[in-house]
Each structure stands twice: as C-alpha cells, then as structure tokens.
C-alpha cells in the first residue's frame, strides 16, 4: 500500500493510488537522503567523545551512510549538538546552524544539550539548545552511549522517511531567513527577546 506508506495527501482519484509519481519520488528522494546524512564534526563537550566513539570501529556510523563527518557546516546535513552549550559558545552554534544548507537536522545529544543537564544552574550554561535552534531528535543520557546515539540517528532516518517533497520547507517559496545570532552583553542577549526587554524597561520608567 504505497499511499499509506508515503501519505501524499493529494486527492488521488480512486484506482490511481500507487501510480502517482509523487509517492515514488518521495520514496526515492527520502531513500537517498536517509543513507547519506553527513553529520558535522562539531564537538562541544563530553558527549563529543562518545560521538567520536560512535564513528569509531566498534559502532561505525558508516554503516548508516554517515561516515563522512565534515568540520564545515556548509557540507553537512546533521548537526549533533554534543554536549553542554555555554552562553559564550552559543553565538557560534547558532551561526553554524545558519550556515548549514537545507535540508538540515539537529540532534541534541545528552542531557546538557537537551535541557542543561547537571550544569543547568550554571551561570554560563544554556539550559536547552532548543530555545535557540529547532531540534529534531533528543537523545537523553549523560553521556548517551554510542548505541543510544545510533538509536537517535535511526530516529532521524525515520523522520526523513516521513517527509514529503511536497511539504518540505526548503522547496517552499518563503525561505527561512535564519535565526538571529545572540549577542554577548552583560548576559546573553537573544535578539528575539528585544521587545520583551524594552517592555520591561518601559515598565520601570512608568513606575519611576
């Protein structure tokens, strides 16, 4: 039942299911993408070591078509946020994300990247990278073992499988403009918080 597998969401006349080009195209398109996800060679903290171990001989990401880890974001499909994101590092992480070409995926590896982990209450720690960039898969653990990471990577593949060429954002007319890079001030300044910040400032003036 190809139309069930791929869910083209077209009004296909009865009797025509499975013969319409878009379903087959989706499948070929996704098959090609799922076996050539190139992760970025981008290590942040402890989890990066487990990420490298995953690329090593015993767990061997190459079996999933992920053997080529590129240090340049321009050549990558997948960003594995492997470890604690600090405020000082965040502008670079966001910039790297913006520089990745579509289609791009983000896997948040470990408790720190997902929600701050044991370092959440630190003054220099970003409690969850998903507050700044969209995350596709979260892998819990501190650190996740290589097998847990592989399971997360398989989840990414699953996600790719369920995407349809018709709906994917990178073929839409309206293109994403990227995420504003946060600035380091007296504390981290997220430019998207600017209205809220100004509001607070005005409130204070009114009170005064």
């Amino acid at each position: 039942m190809p139309n069930e597998l791929n869910k083209p969401e077209y009004n296909i006349p009865p009797g025509m299911e499975g013969t319409v080009a878009i379903t087959t195209l989706d499948r070929i398109y996704n098959w090609g993408r799922r076996y050539s996800v190139w992760p970025m060679f981008f290590g942040l903290a402890c989890c990066a070591i487990e990420m490298i171990a995953t690329a090593g001989a015993r767990f061997d990401m190459a079996r999933f078509g992920m053997e080529i880890m590129r240090p340049s974001p321009r050549q990558c499909d997948l960003m594995i946020v492997s470890g604690t994101v600090t405020k000082k590092m965040l502008p670079q992480v966001v910039r790297l994300y913006n520089q990745m070409p579509e289609p791009k995926y983000v896997l948040s590896m470990g408790a720190c990247a997902s929600g701050g982990g044991p370092f959440k209450r630190g003054y220099n720690v970003v409690a969850g990278i998903d507050k700044y960039i969209p995350v596709d898969v979260y892998v819990p653990g501190c650190p996740p073992t290589p097998q847990a990471l592989l399971f997360g990577l398989m989840k990414i593949q699953e996600k790719i499988d369920n995407q349809s060429i018709k709906h994917v954002s990178w073929y839409q007319d309206q293109q994403d403009e990227g995420i504003p890079v946060p600035v380091l001030g007296p504390d981290l300044i997220d430019l998207r918080d600017f209205p809220k910040l100004m509001e607070k400032e005005q409130d204070k003036e009114v009170q005064a």
Partner: peptide, 9 residues
C-alpha cells in the same frame, strides 16, 4: 567556550 561553572556548582 566550555566554562560550565564547576566551581560555583
């Protein structure tokens, strides 16, 4: 860039 505030924590 990886200052995780070990000492404060």
């Amino acid at each position: 860039y990886l200052h995780r505030n070990h000492e404060k924590i």
